[in-house]
Computed example of a mutant assay.
Amino acid sequence: MTDQTSTLAELGLFTGAPQHDNFCRLGSLLPTRELTPSSTPHQWRTGDTIDLPDTYEFAGETKSFEDFFVGTDTAALLVLEDGVIRHERYALTGGPEVPWISMSVAKSFVSALVGIAVAEGHIKGIDDPISDYVPVNPGSAYDGVSIRNVLQMSSGARWNEDYSDPTSDVFQLNAAMAGVGTLDDFVAGVIRENEPGTLCRYNSGDTQALASLVVRATNRSLTDYMQEKLYEPLGMTSPGAWLLDAAGMEVAFAGLNMTARDFAKLGELYRNGGEWHGNQVVPEQWVRDSVVPDAPYLQPGQPIVGTHRFEFGYGYQWWIPAGDRGEFSAIGVYNQFVYVDPTANATVVKLSSNRTYGTTDSESTNHDHETGAFIRAVINALRN
């Protein structure tokens, strides 16, 4: 057993074990590649603090706001309006300068890097087969499949993202991260099950394939490319890090470590159409296309996560809630959220270590949809 395998096993992920002592220091427990603070750091301005609601509505019930904050082991809650902090609260091991593991919030960062690589000509277009760039086994899931389908979690790969099932595919991906093979080898051999572009099945392997695409197309590490294209221009103020597999490949589907204040900058960037203080960091059209479910199987209630349908729709590695407010969110397990409501000029970050997450494959323990309701209540308080 490798040291990395041993460390992951000791964490006890998805077993009900408390994780707040771990999620703030995974960068010191596992191999990483560092992101350095920007040479032109952007500090958020602070405005008048808003009062958050005592209650919120979910599934026809009135719920306690404080009970949910505590019960989901919230470490950070950051509320921005027009790029100004209107509420900031930390608990447990969280803090304004404390890095936290992104889980699948990382997927939305990878999507932004794909868009930049397309704009720069490293990738000809997203209707190209991803196998034109990434080595895969003939006839495997990603052989001949368009980059667009992979972006939209519609690759057709056989996959089960059930965190309560230790035999599911996502655990095999974690094993590759820990040294049982490599992440690139895992991507190369994924098995096809469905016709690409017909079903949205949430698949962390798809994101790992996209990261391999960025690395192969740019001939740079994911960290190096992100440092130049996102971390530096967005004025990230704190050190960050990507977790690595045994071969030195970034764990792109979940392994980004950053502070709440720096995570918020991706939300604000996308809220502003990819523009950051006069600099078009991500192409505006890419941002628009990323946060719209453009096919029936991508609409809210259609994507499959594990064994169930998810209430949100899906874009280019972004989740889209139902409704007409144009909201979108980066979402990770254990209730990590970077949630954007353009109609309220709001970005909300919730970093968490919900210890019940993944102990079943149901909303009753995972609270993904309820976190959406909780954050909407925050935004409604901002509106009022």
Rank of each mutant, 00 (worst) to 15 (best):
M1S: 14
T2W: 06
G12N: 08
F14D: 05
G16F: 14
A17V: 06
H20W: 15
F23Y: 12
S38N: 12
I50F: 11
Y56K: 10
D67P: 02
V79W: 01
E81D: 13
G83W: 01
T93L: 01
G94K: 01
I116N: 09
I123M: 02
I130S: 04
P135Q: 03
N137F: 00
N137R: 15
N160K: 14
S168Q: 03
S168R: 11
D184A: 15
F186Y: 15
V190P: 01
N194D: 15
G205W: 08
R216V: 01
K229T: 14
P233V: 12
L234N: 10
A247P: 08
M249L: 06
V251I: 07
T259H: 05
A260L: 07
F263L: 10
G267T: 03
G274P: 04
V282L: 12
P283I: 02
P283S: 07
L298N: 10
R309V: 02
F310W: 13
E311D: 07
W318E: 04
G323Q: 02
G326Y: 09
G326H: 12
G326Q: 10
V338N: 08
T343E: 14
T343Q: 15
N345M: 05
N345Q: 13
T347F: 04
L351E: 00
S352Q: 06
Y357A: 09
G358P: 00
T365W: 01
T365S: 14
H367C: 10
D368I: 14
G372Y: 11
N380Q: 15
